[in-house]
Design a protein around this nucleic acid. Structure first.
Lengths: 108, 108
DNA sequence: AATATTTATCGTAATATTGCAATATTAAAT
DNA sequence: ATTTAATATTGCAATATTACGATAAATATT
């Protein structure tokens, strides 16, 4: 196989998995951290920052964008990328709810 | 390629990516949710719960365990799995810190 | 001892991901 | 109009992931 059986799981489970998966690569974590530091920047700035080729960065940006973690606004020649707060907040709330419930549990 | 250039990124970036990656599949999200609901259970209980074969569940459990999200304790014949609070709390804190910083920023 | 139960591992097929060189696309600058 | 700059896309190779049948390993039950 190789393809996930996404149709067997709930919309929320797939949504959380999609967001988490997008963060599941150190380069994409580094991109998010860079965007957090500089607030907003263009693709080439990230190419200068990370040890990856331009097409690779572009691919990672697309995945972050598809997952809703970042957004890009066309500004003439370039595209201004920044973090979309809502998506990360959604993940934050989901995990926070889990951790909150866990403190009331006992583990084996 | 196909292999991530993990050596170019910080230990924390790799750690966060590893945890997020483990949550980056709906089946593993569903496993975590089931463990949250029943507190603790054995592999076969999850096999009965999800539409995946036993070796597939076992594989997903191993990945969750490798990422530190769950832990397993041998109990005679079976293995008792439960959520490891610390790892999810780590991810929670990391994302919370990002979201907190974001509220002070303006996006493009 | 034989059987059942539970989980892990092996092998394999299908698909996805990662990374980059080459190239295309689009808009700005000269 | 030509060149420059910024980004995306294409095509490809290497590797990883997902899924499962078959089987192994280890303990429990009869």
């Amino acid at each position: 196989m190789g393809a996930s059986k996404t149709e067997h799981f709930s919309a929320q489970q797939n949504q959380i998995a999609t967001i988490a998966k997008a963060l599941g690569h150190p380069a994409r974590v580094a991109i998010v951290e860079h965007l957090l530091k500089v607030n907003q920047c263009i693709c080439n700035d990230i190419v200068d920052e990370l040890p990856l080729a331009q097409p690779t960065i572009s691919q990672h940006l697309r995945e972050l964008k598809n997952a809703g973690i970042i957004q890009g606004t066309i500004e003439g020649n370039s595209i201004c990328y920044c973090i979309n707060e809502n998506t990360l907040d959604l993940l934050k709330k989901y995990i926070s709810a889990i951790v909150l419930k866990l403190t009331k549990n006992k583990c084996c």
